[in-house]
Design a protein around this nucleic acid. Structure first.
Length: 609
RNA sequence: GCGCUCAUAGCUCAGCUGGAUAGAGCAUCGCUUUCCUAAAGCGAAGGUCGCAGGUUCGAAUCCUGCUGGGCGCGCCA
C-alpha cells in the first residue's frame, strides 16, 4: 500500500518528537506541507516552531535536535533546518520511484475508510409540481460528488432525495388543478408549474407573517410581497386545507391523482438528472410523504422527553443559547417541515444508522439546520444505536448569480429552469466541438454527427459542473457560460482536453500495457510524480472538509504539471526505450488519475475532443 | 432591531490546526513551433489581503470595533 509522503514524514517526525521531547508529544502535529518553492525541497515541516513556542524553547535549536533524531532512512535525500525553524525535506529518487510505482494500482493510492457506518446525503430536494431550477443544480451535483467521494473511500452512502411531495403546498396544487378541471391523465409539467404558482399566490394566507415582517422591520420587498399574497387568500386556503385533510385520510381518488402529480414531475426531473450524469434515480426518493406516519411519534418523543413546551398553542423546542425556538407542531395540531426533518433525522441516524448526515441545501436555511441539529442533540439522536457520534453537517452553498450579480433570472424575470440551463450548456458544448472538428488536424475531424453530439454534451455538462464545483461552496458565483466552456484556464474542458490528449498519445504508442520501470531524469518528471502522490490525500481532504473544490484545484494543478512535463519531455520520440517506457507509464497513470478524479466530480471524459 | 455570512491582482477565484518573497486562471506584454493535438508551454507586469486596533518571534488566517454587500428572523419549505 502506498502512502502520501506527507504521512511518512509526519510519522517519522512524531517519533522524533517522542524521543526528543518525551512520550506525551508523540501525537503533536508536525504540520508537513508540500514546499511552496522548489528551493525549499519537496516538503516542509512547519510544526516545530509552534511547539517550541509552547515549550519556551528556541525554535531553531529544537528544529536541529528534531532533525538529528528523525529517521527517514533512505526515504529522504536531505533534511535541512531553515529560516526560523522549518525543516526542509528533499525526497530521494529511489523513494519517489517506489512510491509512484506503488500507487500505480487500481486504488491509485486512495485508502478505504475503516468506518463501517453509512452516510446519508440529503440532496436535490425536488418539489413536486415544480420544475428544477438552478438552486437544484448546486444541491444535486455537490451532493452527488460528495457521495461519489465517500463511495470511493468504501463508505455506504444513502442519497436522500427529500422530495417536497406532501403537505399544504401539494394540497394547494391538487386543489387548484381539480377546481380548474385539468385532466390529470394528460398534465404536463407546465400545467403543474402554472398551478403551483397560482396556488402559491392565491392560497397564501400569511397575515401572521405580515405582522411579523412589519414588527421586525423586514425589507419593503418582503412586506409588499406578503400584502399582495393576502388579498385573495381565505377561500382558496380553506379549500386547500380540506383537500389536505382528505389526502391525509387516504382518500383513494385523491391519492391516485397525487401520484399522477408526482409521476409527471419526476419524469421531467429524471431527464435532467440523466443529462447531468448524476447517480440519482427513483430508488433515492424518500420525500416528506415517506415520513407522514412518523410525525406524531416524532413530536411525542419531544413531549415525553420534556424538551418541548406550548407557546401560543403551538409546540416549540427552546434552546439555552438563543431566543429563537424551533416550532415542531402548529397550533392547529398540524405538523410542519421541522417535524418532517426531525423524523428524517431519526430515521437516518436510528434506523439507517448513519454516523454522518449531510444536507446539501442553500445557505438561506442555515438557522433552520442549526436548530434541527441542536434539537436532535437534545433528544439524543446524535448517536447511532451502537453509540457512535453522529456528525450533522449542513453545506450552505451560495447562490448562482446572473451578470447583474443578482440571483439568476431570465429576461422576463422568472427563475431559470435547470433544463433550459442544461440545454444551453449542451448547445454551447456541441457548437465548440463541431467548430473544432472542422480543422483537418483535429482528432475529431470526420467523426459522425452523433459522436460529436455526445462529446459536445459531455463538454457542456462538464463545463457547468466543474465551474460550480470548483468554487468555494459558501460563496455565490456568477454564471458565465463563456468562461465555463473555455478550453483554457481552470475549467472542466481544459482538464478533459488534457486527458484526451494523453489518451491520443497512448493510442499512438501502440502499447496496451504500461509497466516499465519509472525513471526520473528531469525536474518536470519529478514534479509530476510529487503531484500524483498527493491524490489519495486530496480525496481524504475532500471527504473531511466536504469541499469538492479542493479536488478541482488539485486536478487543475496536476493537469498543469502534466502539460509542463509533456512540453519538456518527449515521449514517443525519445530514443532511449527505457525512458520512453517510463514516460508512457507516467502518462497513463496521470490519465487514469484524471479520469478517476473527474469521475468523483461526476464529469465524463471523452476519448477524443 | 437581532442573528448569520462574505470582502485577497483590472476580472474570476485559491490560500489547508498562524509560517519563509500572499498564489493560480483570464485579460495585457514578451519568448518558444523542421516537435507526440499551439485548444500548448515558458517568462514579465500586476496586490495597503475592506478599514482601524489587539494578541506574538511571525497575522490574509486568531480576537475586538467599524464600513460595505448578501441572506435569514416560530405556525411556508
Amino acid at each position: 500500500m502506498t502512502k502520501d509522503p506527507k504521512q511518512t514524514i509526519s510519522k517519522a517526525v512524531q517519533e522524533a518528537f517522542s524521543s526528543v521531547l518525551g512520550e506525551q508529544y508523540k501525537d503533536a502535529n508536525p504540520v508537513v506541507r508540500l514546499s511552496q518553492n522548489p528551493k525549499f525541497g519537496d516538503y516542509q515541516i512547519n510544526g516545530i516552531m509552534g511547539l517550541a513556542k509552547k515549550l519556551g524553547q528556541n525554535p531553531r535549536e529544537l528544529a536541529e535536535k528534531i532533525k538529528d533524531s528523525v529517521d527517514l532512512a533512505s526515504f529522504a535525500e536531505s533534511l535541512e533546518v531553515a529560516g526560523p525553524g522549518f525543516i526542509n525535506v528533499t525526497l530521494s529518487l529511489p523513494a519517489l520511484i517506489t512510491l509512484c510505482e506503488e500507487m500505480d494500482t487500481d486504488s491509485l493510492g486512495v485508502h478505504k475508510s475503516e468506518d463501517s457506518h453509512p452516510i446519508a446525503i440529503d440532496l436535490c430536494g425536488v418539489n413536486v409540481a415544480k420544475q428544477l431550477h438552478v438552486g437544484h443544480l448546486r444541491s444535486t451535483i455537490i451532493g452527488d460528488s460528495l457521495a461519489r467521494v465517500f463511495e470511493r473511500l468504501g463508505r455506504k452512502v444513502y442519497r436522500e432525495n427529500h422530495l417536497g411531495d406532501w403537505g399544504l403546498p401539494i394540497a394547494k396544487v391538487l386543489e387548484n388543478l381539480l377546481s380548474t378541471g385539468v385532466d390529470l391523465h394528460a398534465i404536463s409539467i407546465e400545467d403543474l408549474n402554472t398551478a403551483y404558482k397560482d396556488a402559491q399566490f392565491i392560497a397564501k394566507d400569511d397575515v401572521a407573517g405580515l405582522e411579523t415582517a412589519k414588527n421586525i422591520s423586514a425589507g419593503p420587498h418582503r412586506i409588499t410581497e406578503l400584502e399582495e399574497q393576502n388579498a385573495e387568500a381565505i377561500p382558496a386556503q380553506e379549500r386547500a386545507k380540506s383537500t389536505l385533510v382528505r389526502l391525509q385520510q387516504g382518500d383513494a381518488d385523491l391519492l391516485s391523482n397525487w401520484e399522477k402529480l408526482i409521476d409527471c414531475t419526476m419524469k421531467e426531473v429524471y431527464v435532467s438528472l440523466d443529462l447531468l450524469n448524476v447517480k440519482l434515480g427513483p430508488e433515492h426518493n424518500r420525500g416528506e410523504s415517506f415520513y407522514r406516519d412518523r410525525l406524531a411519534d416524532t413530536v411525542d418523543a419531544f413531549i415525553n422527553a420534556k424538551l418541548s413546551e406550548e407557546d401560543d398553542g403551538a409546540l416549540i423546542v427552546r434552546f439555552k443559547d438563543r431566543k429563537r425556538p424551533l416550532l415542531i407542531q402548529k397550533s392547529d395540531g398540524g405538523f410542519i417541515y421541522a417535524t418532517t426533518d426531525l423524523a428524517a433525522i431519526y430515521f437516518r441516524t436510528q434506523e439507517l444508522k448513519c454516523d454522518s448526515v449531510i444536507y446539501v441545501v442553500d445557505a438561506r436555511q442555515r438557522d433552520h439546520f442549526k436548530d434541527l441539529f441542536d434539537a436532535a442533540a437534545l433528544i439524543g439522536w446524535n448517536k447511532t444505536p451502537d453509540g457512535a457520534d453522529v456528525m450533522f453537517k449542513h453545506i450552505p452553498f451560495g447562490s448562482v448569480l446572473g451578470d447583474d450579480k443578482k440571483p439568476l433570472k431570465t429576461r422576463s424575470g422568472s427563475s431559470v429552469t435547470l433544463s433550459s440551463l442544461l440545454d444551453e450548456a449542451i448547445a454551447r458544448g456541441r457548437a465548440e466541438v463541431r467548430r473544432r472538428s472542422e480543422d483537418e488536424k483535429s482528432q475529431t475531424h470526420g467523426m459522425s454527427s452523433k459522436e460529436l453530439s455526445t462529446i459536445g454534451r459531455q463538454i457542456g455538462i462538464g463545463a457547468i459542473k466543474y465551474a460550480d464545483l470548483s468554487n468555494d461552496l459558501v460563496s455565490d458565483y456568477v454564471f458565465d457560460m463563456d468562461r465555463m466552456i473555455s478550453f483554457e484556464g481552470n475549467t472542466g474542458p481544459y482538464i478533459q482536453y488534457a486527458c484526451a490528449r494523453i489518451a491520443s498519445l497512448l493510442e499512438k504508442s501502440g502499447e496496451t500495457s504500461f509497466s516499465s520501470r519509472i525513471l526520473i531524469n528531469t525536474p518536470q518528471e519529478r514534479l509530476l510524480i510529487l503531484k500524483l502522490l498527493q491524490y489519495g490525500n486530496v480525496i481524504q481532504s475532500v471527504a473531511q472538509h466536504l469541499e469538492p473544490h479542493l479536488l478541482c484545484l488539485w486536478l487543475h494543478e496536476l493537469t498543469g504539471a502534466f502539460s509542463s512535463f509533456y512540453q519538456a519531455c518527449p515521449v514517443l520520440k525519445v530514443e532511449d526505450e527505457a525512458i520512453k517506457g517510463s514516460r508512457l507509464r507516467l502518462s497513463e497513470l496521470t490519465r487514469r488519475v484524471i479520469v478517476d478524479g473527474l469521475d468523483l466530480l461526476g464529469i465524463e471524459v471523452p476519448q477524443k475532443m
